[in-house]
Design a protein around this nucleic acid. Structure first.
Lengths: 341, 341
DNA sequence: ATTTAGCAGTCGAAGGCAAAGAGTGCTAAC
DNA sequence: GTTAGCACTCTTTGCCTTCGACTGCTAAAT
């Protein structure tokens, strides 16, 4: 547990670093946040905070910068709420109310307005789970691989590949296919996504198939997940404006990660969450892109259609502002969808 | 008219510069392209080529780099044909034949394979003009602005704004609306795009409306053009790998231009062209993004649906390779669409 | 009239060096 | 526990020099 003063100092470092992007010195903290202590005292505290893993000193004659752990702590406990300025709130409302077009247009509008206001990259993911599964086909490719194809009422979904154990023959595959169809046909893809393999449910005869089934179902999950998805991204450029990307190699690394839309979509959606819920992922340890933080909120867009709105930026992100913006947007969307029904 | 030797030298400079991205020295040319002349002779030629506007000398102790004019000349007259390597051709075929899915999937696949093989940014634009116009509405916003809305059988199209001359009253607007509907309702959006305002056709009574009508029609064109469009882009990151973007500011400038999808779509489509036609735009003067060149080919994707496939890279682009790749892709697409019908 | 060799001249790139500045950690006193 | 003071470290900046790359020009050769 951190003392109040340590918290205050840590918060000062994070706030200052978010704003300036430069290491924070003890004197700065004294001048701007804690005039009641001497800089020496603050240095002592900084030193212990560093040994606790919250701070990092780039080199001996530099101030401190917050570690990812510090940002996590900041988001969890230190950060105070922020309200958007009236004119920003108005700008958002104006921008989104003007768009009365299709869902795609609204998605695009959302990414644009978020990127513009926050100066980070914005992503919107739409997951449409309203398709019904018509058939599941297993095709032995006779090279030890099994091709899994899902057919839905609206179209053929992508396929996926699975390794086939050696001792599987044609008949066993047919049996597996039959079993999968029995369970899933006629159901919504949405039910698929959260399906847990019911080992208990499978009777004696099938128990030997367990490993294979598990793999197949993982493929099915992934494949069906990606397929109803629509990913819209905007503002890679704004994120690159921040000083962490002043070296081209770093900028390119960031962009390369942003190009992998499937990965991004997964990051925005993989931890469900109710309408209006807010998630913050900081750094690669929490499954955000390397060096990045991702803030996500979820909104429902109708029956079996859900959306995730996310902001991606450097770990040194202005969390207060981003959370406030997403909050505002999410309110508007919920309102907008509500009216439409 | 350039002498043969000047052409040879110019070609050498461009080829070498495309490959190395560094200014080309007289000695290099002598060594690799023209062993029969001395470097002094080549220097003389280079000097006159520079005064003719084909070459640029970054500073006095550097070699020459080609100007945009030189690249244009190179593409028009100097460049020799290039064939893809067998394995590249095979890679493309393999990659595209594997994709039997929706048109969207194919578009995505095309952008990915092009970006991968050429190492530039790739764009595919689909223009669907099969919608029929149901109604055109003019709404007086009573602030001197007129809102133009087009409705089609499949959805509401975006709106556009037009300044209204002072002396226009309600009745005149109604009359204009009536006229527009009479001409355009029931027609395909495609007919819209190439519509020229028929001043002659308009009778005496309407002649005073000419300016307004012209403006409205421009809006309608633009609005309807953008609406049936689907733009897919991939590989911004590959383009950034080239040395012209080694400064972050330049990289960001490029990305900012790429973010304007409407502009890009317009560049790829604004000069029509028949199936399989190939266009090369070099530099801002030819309406490409600043510092960039755009190579485009057109393919038909069905009745009233046409596609443009483009590659965007620095002016110092490997035109030979890009043209060869687009040629190959275009062949495959034409073949693929032909089969489908 | 063209081509060539040779050379002086220009400019950028790279490296070394010293001075300046920023912050800290430590010590000793409060 | 807090603070003042100071020595110490390390980066940043600017400056200078050297090195190397090419050219343009001149004068001779073809």
């Amino acid at each position: 547990m951190l003392s109040d003063r340590k918290k205050k100092i840590l918060c000062a470092v994070v706030d200052s670093y978010i704003e300036s992007a430069t290491p924070v010195a003890s004197k700065d903290i004294q001048a701007e946040y804690l005039p009641d202590c001497s800089s020496a005292t603050i240095r002592n505290e900084l030193s212990t905070l560093e040994s606790m893993g919250y701070l990092i000193q780039p080199h001996v004659s530099a101030g401190r910068i917050p570690s990812e752990k510090a940002f996590r702590f900041y988001v969890n406990e230190l950060m105070y709420e922020n309200n958007l300025s009236a004119q920003e709130a108005e700008l958002i409302e104006k921008y989104l109310n003007r768009k009365i077009g299709s869902l795609e247009d609204v998605m695009t509008a959302i990414t644009h307005i978020i990127a513009e206001i926050t100066n980070y990259t914005s992503v919107v993911v739409k997951e449409d789970m309203s398709d019904t599964i018509t058939a599941i086909k297993l095709l032995d490719l006779s090279n030890g691989k099994l091709l899994v194809v899902i057919v839905t009422d609206s179209r053929v979904l992508k396929d996926g590949m699975v390794d086939l154990p050696d001792d599987f023959d044609e008949q066993m595959i047919a049996r597996a296919q039959h079993w999968l169809n029995k369970i899933f046909c006629g159901k919504h893809v949405s039910e698929f996504i959260n399906f847990d393999y019911p080992f208990a449910l499978v009777n004696e005869e099938f128990s030997q198939y367990n490993a294979l089934f598990k793999k197949i179902i993982d493929v099915l999950k992934k494949v069906s997940l990606m397929n109803g998805m629509d990913v819209e991204m905007y503002g890679e450029n704004q994120t690159l404006a921040h000083s962490e990307y002043s070296k081209v190699e770093d900028a390119r690394k960031f962009l390369a990660q942003m190009e992998n839309k499937e990965r991004i979509a997964e990051i925005l959606t993989n931890d469900g969450g109710a309408d209006g819920s807010m998630t913050v992922k900081i750094g690669a340890d929490e499954n955000a892109p390397e060096g990045c933080a991702v803030v996500t909120t979820r909104v429902s867009l109708g029956e079996n259609v859900s959306g995730s709105i996310g902001v991606i930026g450097p770990v040194r992100m202005n969390y207060r502002k981003v959370l406030a913006v997403l909050d505002k947007i999410s309110d508007i969307i919920i309102d907008l969808v509500g009216k439409g029904e």
